[in-house]
Design a protein around this nucleic acid. Sequence first.
DNA 1: AGAATACATTTGCATGTGCGTATGTGTCTA
DNA 2: TAGACACATACGCACATGCAAATGTATTCT
Lengths: 151, 151
Amino acid sequence: MQMYSTDMTGRQKIFAMDSLFRALADRTRLRLLNLMAGQEICVCYFIEVTEESQPKISRHLAYLRRAGIVAARREGKWMHYRITEPQDAAGRRVLREVLSWLREDKAMQADRARLARACCKPEKFVSIQGAPPPTALAISTRTSSSRMEAR
Amino acid sequence: MQMYSTDMTGRQKIFAMDSLFRALADRTRLRLLNLMAGQEICVCYFIEVTEESQPKISRHLAYLRRAGIVAARREGKWMHYRITEPQDAAGRRVLREVLSWLREDKAMQADRARLARACCKPEKFVSIQGAPPPTALAISTRTSSSRMEAR
DNA sequence: AGAATACATTTGCATGTGCGTATGTGTCTA
DNA sequence: TAGACACATACGCACATGCAAATGTATTCT
């Protein structure tokens, strides 16, 4: 059985749908999601890889968090973000196809390559000295069980 | 070989991605796409089924048309709209998953049921007297070949 | 040609969104 | 406990978007 965050009118799931697409309707947020695909990442890596300002990154991460697409975890000074898959199977398939679409994109591949470089040689990137590197996540077929701090 | 509407910077495909999601980021537009899934539909049916104002429907159809997601065809007084699938395979998979997501939604199912009723008993709906009924489309594995009036 | 039909577009307004800048908050270190 | 660090949030601005209401346009009918 699926559990929807539905209200009396039964239309809440619709809201969740266009809400998801609003969250995806921004290039910066797509870049962040692309970098999070399959791994949990520290904010400083986002800033380093995208070369965007810290508040801008933080704002978009907050947007994704409010949309329920990502979750955050604190580790000392650092904040780690990871993708949380939708509860219903169809929404999960959509998000996965989106991520696989991102994976095929040239600019997104460039971002991932830059992330890999930053992880291999963190000493070359002043901003991420000592920051915990990204950690791969389980195949995450789980439906958002064992959830962490979502807000 | 795929053909991207790419510019000198090679980033145009990214634009196409968040552009698609902006088009999907509205409940009314999702309702219209749901009704168009697999068939070509006349505008008056959209108005009848959604019970929204005519300018509102027309505006959202224009939005989808500008985003390249739907195409229009004129038949006398009537305008027919249908979904045009993205050129690249990954984008096409995304859109298909979105449509299948819509198919599972209760409110979307209600819309489709109401459309079916309007088609079976057009005499009960004053606004669509004599309007051409929706016509099923081919499986449309074609990549937007044989394109019609897109704008 | 003139009226009716079926849509499309424009206008004015309210709201949402993205951005840089500035400032606040939680954590570690000295 | 004071400062540095990593990040989050508030503020003000410019711009995009959604809406209703009004108007414009293409087509058919008489």
